[in-house]
Amino acid sequence: MADQPTATERFLQGILPENPVYRQLLGLCPTLAVTNGMQPAITMACSVAFVLICANVVISLLRNLLKPHLRIVIFTLTIATFVTIADRVLAAYLYQMSKTLGPYIPLIIVNCLIICRCEVCASKQSPFIAASDALGQSLGFGLALVSIAAVRELLGTGGLFGYQLLPAAWPDWVIMVLPPGAFITLGLLLGLVNWYSARKSGGSI
């Protein structure tokens, strides 16, 4: 396994160079759906982090027993188990938030980000490396979610976490917290990230 990346490399790659949302375009469903405010975005990022870390470690422990044609089923069943745990915990301790997030917590099961990490990293490397990979990826995912939510909530309601930040004269761009705003914000931020990384690597733009 000499050519496989080490734990530190995996961790650092997840945050920016291989950011799940901006670079790999994975897990867009929750990215668009729950970023109309900071609180749902952070809750979603934490739930995804929990599921991703647990699933990655379990899959990594099972990696020598996996059969090629059954591995996707095993991945989804493992993920579904941890999502059920996360869903029950949220419903018990943060009932209002779990109502707000609604079907998007169970939809973590089919989030391509987690299946992709299980496939790329956890089914090939040891639990420690898989855990650090999961940590890096979920940090990157959380970063992307928070950046989109910040733009949308600030422009849509004039504040963050419910506190007014912009002057009261700010006309709330309500469209930003509605579905179309999600698409437009992510599209523009994606373009910005592409432009920035192309300029940094000396592209001709």
């Binding site: 469209i175 698409f183 437009i184 599209g187 523009l188 373009g191 592409n194 733009i205």
Partner: peptide
């Protein structure tokens, strides 16, 4: 524009489409 090619412009167009469906 170069940075917007592919997914980025698709998302922006999707946003306008969502606006129409609203």
């Amino acid at each position: 524009p170069e940075p917007f090619k592919g997914a980025a412009i698709t998302l922006v167009v999707g946003g306008i489409l969502a606006l129409a469906f609203m």
